[in-house]
Amino acid sequence: MPRNFCRLRLLGLNLLIALLACGSSYAARTSRTSESSGSLTTVVIDAGHGGHDRGGIPGQRIAEKDMTLDVAQRLRNVLAASGYRVVMSRDSDVFVSLPTRVAIANSYRNAIFVCIHFNATQRSGAGGIETYFYSRDSLQLASAIHSYVAGGAPSSNRGVRRRGFYVLRKTNIPAVLVECGFLTNPTEAAYAGSASYRQKLAEEIAAGVRGRNIVGSASYVDQTKVAKSEHRRSKRSQKKGARKKKSSSKPAGSEARSGSIDRES
């Protein structure tokens, strides 16, 4: 009887050790997953432009609004498959004002805001990928997304930049704006015209979202002072030619990127 009792105690002890080992392994995996995803539950995806606002510059052949929506929808699918809750500022070809886009983003907690754009300029040779942020707590997210997108694209790397675009300045959650290439550059326009390339853009942005707590903060170019200077010059110009401006101006809030569309600097 004592021998059987000892055997039972030994068996129970071994079982307890095995359970503790499994529990420790599970806790470690859970900890790593939690560290990677943080407390993030929602990603607000903002497809630039839409409706009467084609985006880009006058005479541009490819409508930016179509490219941004396609990438945004692909990004939604990738993130949803990874378990994220995804909110779209627009999911069809409709115009959404900048304040409305910001209001959508600010209505969610434990969330991030990812704005999708393509660039444009009068100089067809300009090209590359660039990512913008404004608040300091958005730098790491911008760095991670830019690292993946620029690293996976055949275009040049124009770096991470800080600038006070409306949708970045007014949001209360980490927010970035990704410029996925120049639609006025023939080579990059051809890339954007490929469904497989747009899918790759979506997957790289999603990888940046997932890896935002892993990739370190990048160095960046601070363009906030440049933007303020451009804004002052623009206001002076508007006062001088108010009548001419009034007849040719765009609808208010139609451009998500403040100041000049030219990104050649």
Rank of each mutant, 00 (worst) to 15 (best):
M1V: 04
N4C: 01
C6V: 10
C6A: 13
R7F: 08
R9V: 14
R9S: 04
R9E: 02
L11C: 06
L16H: 06
Y26P: 00
A27G: 08
R29E: 15
S31Y: 14
S39D: 15
T41H: 01
T42F: 06
D53C: 05
G59F: 02
R61C: 00
I62K: 06
D66C: 02
D66N: 12
M67S: 09
T68E: 00
L69V: 11
V71W: 06
V71R: 06
Q73G: 11
R74S: 08
L79Y: 10
A80F: 01
A80Y: 08
G83Q: 13
G83W: 14
M88N: 04
M88V: 11
M88F: 05
V94M: 10
L98W: 04
A103I: 03
I104K: 12
N106V: 04
N110W: 02
I112M: 09
R123T: 15
S124G: 00
G127E: 15
I129F: 07
I129P: 14
T131G: 04
Y132C: 00
R136F: 07
A144P: 05
V149L: 15
G151C: 12
A153D: 13
P154Q: 11
P154Y: 13
S155E: 14
S156Y: 06
R163K: 14
V167L: 15
A175M: 09
A175V: 07
L177R: 01
F182L: 04
T184L: 13
N185Q: 09
P186W: 09
A189Y: 03
G193A: 08
Y197Q: 02
R198Q: 12
Q199C: 06
A202F: 02
R210Y: 08
S217I: 15
Q223C: 07
A227Y: 13
E230G: 04
K235E: 07
K240A: 10
K245G: 05
S254N: 03
A256S: 07
I261Q: 09
